[in-house]
Write a protein that binds this DNA or RNA. Structure first.
Lengths: 146, 146
DNA sequence: TAAATATTGACAGTAAACTGTCGAAAATGG
DNA sequence: CCATTTTCGACAGTTTACTGTCAATATTTA
């Protein structure tokens, strides 16, 4: 059997996604390093910040597309570091909410101030139309596997 | 400071890249599991298969955008499993070539036969134009960070 | 050509993802 | 409303990345 034209492009895109994902993780670690954070912790902070309601560990995992266990590890470490606290969840005896502390909110604010000029600068040579297309294709791919 | 329109789209695309990358890794593990392989090993086989010349561990790492050390681990394990062998490199005393065995080539062929219909099927609802745009944007992003 | 620099494999340690299993708690469906 | 199924946290173990350092080897430069 042979790849269709689209199957071939799809395959090449996947290889590029793996590569870029790795590069961006390195870049994220670099941006957050001086704050004692990392790409992974940044994502957890972001998930909590973006949500209007408090989230449990399992909910954060679902938002981020990870396993409960991975997020649990990060959360335990971040609580230990004072970035977040566990809070009683009246709707569930065991599944506590994870809530950002002032320290956690402050850390996220600082990272955001670093990320914004970084994103603006790095996106300047890509057209808005192409960015929109890319985002929509990525979302379409994501839906295929959830 | 605020995100430009493009900065915002760029940021959303990055979050989606992380998510899709994770999903595709799971998918790759699923496709290769019955062959006793994994996404990571598949990538190593692919890098060797695609190259016309024999490659050293460090060269494979560069092609894949990983560290020498990660690939070294995979390579040692795959040599142990008979998928590849180390071969003397006349141009470098320490940096041996990594070469696929018949078993390694056969494994890659089987995976390819599985991957082709998978890619053809999963790309069928995305237009060729959009796939091309996505691939070119991803490559542009990759170039920013290498 | 000699010295400085870069690359490589080896080794040790860490981070962040995964899998699987368990019992408790919650949600669902007869 | 009770039994079944699903979700959740906890625990243990694995894989695949990373970092850093060392000595040996290659390459570049003065």
């Amino acid at each position: 059997m042979q790849h269709t034209k689209k199957g071939q492009l799809f395959t090449e895109a996947i290889l590029e996604i793996f590569k870029v994902s790795g590069q961006l993780a390195v870049e994220g670690d670099r941006l957050t390093k001086e704050l004692g954070l990392s790409s992974a912790r940044w994502k957890v902070l972001g998930a909590l910040k973006m949500s209007n309601e408090p989230l449990t560990v399992a909910q954060v995992a679902r938002v981020m597309g990870l396993t409960r266990q991975s997020v649990q590890r990060l959360a335990d470490a971040m609580v230990k570091d004072g970035l977040m606290v566990y809070q009683i969840n009246p709707h569930h005896k065991r599944a506590n909410y994870v809530v950002l502390t002032e320290k956690g909110k402050a850390a996220y604010s600082i990272i955001t101030e670093i990320q914004i000029p970084w994103a603006n600068e790095n996106s300047k040579d890509i057209s808005e139309v192409d960015l929109n297309t890319t985002l929509s294709v990525l979302r379409k791919i994501s839906l295929l596997f959830k």
